[in-house]
């Protein structure tokens, strides 16, 4: 797969990032090297091999449905860069 400007722009947009000029060239090179590395795995014959999704045979342990209120509103808002007494504040999300 060839990493071109279009692909970088698309991935950047999805990640809410912006690359320009030299940065863009640099990231293009990085992404190409990552893809080449991954493509190497394609050389292995995996015919008839089930994809490995989890690294263990364990299954999910469930949590009892019991309330444990770990933190207060004050603590929840403490690390927010912008807030008022009740809410997190973020830049205006334009109504689309």
């Amino acid at each position: 797969m060839e990493v071109n400007d279009e692909l970088v722009d698309k991935i950047a947009a999805l990640a809410k990032l912006e690359f320009k000029g030299e940065e863009k060239e640099a990231i293009k090179g990085d992404m190409q090297r990552i893809l080449n590395f991954i493509d190497k795995l394609g050389e292995v014959d995996t015919e008839g091999v089930e994809p490995l999704v989890y690294m263990t045979d364990e299954t999910l342990k469930l949590r009892a449905d019991e309330v444990d209120q770990e933190i207060s509103q004050d603590e929840a808002l403490r690390n927010a860069p912008d807030k008022d007494s009740d809410y997190f504040k973020v830049p205006k999300v334009l109504k689309k």
Partner: peptide, 24 residues
């Protein structure tokens, strides 16, 4: 209609004051 949220133990309730029903 569970007592707690899907993946954490904070209460699942409607109409509470904002940002009270939260966990990390």
């Amino acid at each position: 209609k569970t007592k707690t949220k899907a993946f954490s133990s904070d209460p699942n309730a409607y109409g509470e004051l904002p940002n009270h029903l939260v966990t990390p």
